[in-house]
Computed example of a mutant assay.
Amino acid sequence: MKKLSLFFLSLMCITLWSCSDDENPAIEVVVNFSDKLTDPNSSFQPEGGEVDGYYKVVTFTDTRNLVEMPSYYSDWGFGGGFTYTNISDKTTPGYMNLGNITGVGRSGSVYLTANSNAYTPAYVKNLDVSKYQFKGAWVTNSTYAYLAVKDGNDGNNPALVRKFGDGDWFKLTAVGYDVSDNELGCVDFYLADYRDGQSKVVNAWEWFDWSALATADHISFELSSTDSGEFGMNTPSYFCMDGITLVEK
């Protein structure tokens, strides 16, 4: 009987130990912009801002003020950084189309479109690093970049942008920085990959894991491509993002 009691006591301890990790699961928070736009096929229309080169620049936040990001714009519209939109156009080439190739958002009707380069950098800043860490986000190709890569059609200069072939790639890199702008590391995501016999151009929402950059104060985004020339990358420096996810510490 004593041996039996010890057995059940041991079993109970094992059960309690195995469940202990589930008692306080990490709480995830998904950033969204669902209440920011009311009209269909529309985008963020910034006002004010400071002049930065050819553009004015403002920063905006999500519905719950969890993250902040920049938006560059001019009289003709979006110039770079990030904007939020619900455009569903999957077929029109060119930079005026801010839609993504899926035609819909991943976690709602409103999602983010970015144009990130040296002149209009796109970044996401964690507004409460004492409470939250970065986990990741869903990404996909913009219609603009997708048609340029897949068909060689950027809606502007077919002699400049070429259709991707063997060995080509189009890569999104997330770079994490601390509050003092010291680099913490980086992670890559291929928006198009024609290496090693592949011919993939992302046309669905796919998860981009930022766990290696979890403690970053802000994450910036860089784009690179094998289709580059004397003046830089020929592939449009656009991508789309949705469902930025934070985890409570």
Rank of each mutant, 00 (worst) to 15 (best):
P121K: 08
P121I: 08
A122Y: 00
A122K: 04
A122T: 00
A122R: 00
Y123P: 06
V124H: 05
V124K: 03
N126R: 10
L127R: 08
L127H: 04
L127V: 12
D128A: 10
D128S: 15
K131T: 15
K131V: 13
Y132A: 09
Y132T: 01
Y132Q: 11
Y132K: 12
Q133K: 15
Q133H: 13
K135V: 09
G136L: 10
A137G: 01
A137E: 06
T140V: 04
S142V: 02
T143Y: 03
T143K: 07
Y144G: 02
L147F: 03
L147I: 06
A148T: 01
V149C: 11
D151H: 12
G152Y: 10
N153H: 02
N153I: 04
D154L: 05
N157H: 14
N157L: 02
N157S: 08
N157Y: 10
P158E: 07
P158Y: 04
P158T: 13
A159N: 12
L160A: 07
V161R: 12
V161K: 11
R162I: 07
K163A: 02
F164Y: 12
G165R: 09
G165F: 03
D166H: 07
D166I: 09
D166Q: 14
D166G: 04
G167W: 10
D168F: 11
W169L: 11
F170P: 01
K171M: 08
T173I: 12
G176F: 07
Y177D: 06
Y177H: 14
V179K: 14
V179I: 15
S180C: 12
D181S: 12
N182P: 05
E183I: 15
E183Q: 14
L184R: 07
L184Y: 01
G185K: 10
F189N: 10
F189P: 11
Y190L: 14
A192G: 10
A192Y: 06
D193Y: 01
Y194K: 11
Y194I: 00
Q198D: 13
Q198I: 03
S199D: 11
V201H: 02
V201W: 02
V202K: 07
N203Q: 13
N203D: 15
A204G: 05
W205R: 00
W207D: 02
F208S: 04
A212F: 02
A214S: 15
A214R: 13
A214M: 08
A214N: 08
T215W: 02
A216G: 04
A216T: 00
A216N: 09
A216E: 06
H218M: 07
H218L: 04
S220D: 05
L223E: 00
L223I: 05
L223R: 03
S224M: 08
D227N: 15
S228P: 03
E230A: 15
F231D: 12
G232M: 13
G232Q: 05
T235K: 03
T235E: 02
P236M: 09
P236E: 01
P236R: 07
S237R: 12
Y238G: 00
F239H: 01
C240D: 08
C240S: 13
C240W: 05
C240G: 08
M241E: 08
D242C: 08
I244Q: 05
L246S: 07
V247R: 14
V247E: 14
E248M: 14
E248R: 15
E248G: 12
E248T: 09
E248V: 13
